[in-house]
């Protein structure tokens, strides 16, 4: 798929070029984790997952917005909108998974959980779903400030809303909360959480891709015709070019 690999590479290069962002991407979940480390068992895992979701979704949002002016020109240069979107998705999901992996190691070493593998799954789900969420919000909301406020609302709502309410399950990060519950308290439906993770991850990616493809679509008023039907006019620089004011 044209443009996927190079777009993924450039997304990573862009993020690595923002050294402070990389530092914060790793540190934000740590701050959340450390703030609740001395609370009752497992609370630190919940907050690490929350911090991870906030950090990764924000990075994905900015990854979308920073290339927004560039993408129409990349389309004209021959890239496909599917490749451009999937390249960004691949790199941000990969980045989220890597940071989640770091915290999975930290949790494994520092926390005693009932189901350690559920804790790992919860963190990976958090990092990957957040990337997909950030890209979707970036596709829908073109401005960073508004996008940021939407992300704060969605991620924060997932943590404060009563998990027994049906609306909690409709939110995109429900799977991570369910998996953390299984990891820490031994309650929670792992199969349902994984299904929710897959459904929302793929669903949000498809919607974001559709929005991106629509935004970068070839407009119908532009018709590409074969250049060979148009004879080349010799420019005759300096001979045939009149000064505009002298043209009749």
């Amino acid at each position: 798929m044209r443009g996927l690999a190079v777009t993924a590479e450039m997304t990573i290069r862009d993020l690595l070029g923002r050294r402070t962002v990389v530092l914060l991407l790793v540190l934000v979940p740590l701050v959340f984790y450390a703030a609740r480390r001395d609370d009752f068992q497992g609370q630190a895992v919940r907050f690490a997952s929350l911090g991870l979701a906030w950090a990764v979704s924000t990075v994905a949002l900015f990854a979308t917005n920073s290339v927004r002016p560039l993408e129409p020109r990349l389309r004209l240069a021959g890239h496909g909108s599917v490749g451009l979107y999937l390249g960004r998705l691949t790199s941000t999901v990969g980045l989220g998974a890597v940071v989640a992996g770091l915290y999975a190691v930290l949790v494994a070493l520092d926390q005693e959980t009932v189901n350690p593998w559920s804790a790992v799954l919860a963190l990976v789900a958090s990092g990957t779903i957040a990337a997909s969420l950030g890209l979707l919000v970036g596709a829908i909301v073109p401005r960073e400030l508004e996008g940021m406020l939407v992300l704060i609302t969605i991620v924060g709502l997932q943590m404060i809303i009563d998990p027994t309410k049906a609306v909690a399950e409709a939110l995109p990060l429900w799977s991570t909360r369910e998996l953390v519950g299984h990891a820490v308290d031994g309650v929670g439906d792992v199969d349902a959480a994984i299904a929710h993770w897959a459904l929302y991850g793929v669903g949000m990616a498809v919607v974001a891709l559709a929005i991106t493809a629509f935004r970068l679509r070839r407009r119908r008023h532009v018709v590409y015709v074969d250049a060979t039907v148009e004879p080349v006019v010799a420019a005759g620089r300096g001979v045939t070019r009149p000064v505009s004011g002298d043209r009749g």
Binding site: M10, D14, S66, P69, L70, P72, R73, V222, Y224, A227
Partner: peptide, 17 residues
Amino acid sequence: VHGRLGYCPQEMGLDGF
């Protein structure tokens, strides 16, 4: 349009990082 299009915008269509 005959051939490919190239467009250079007035505002910077570049990624600063």
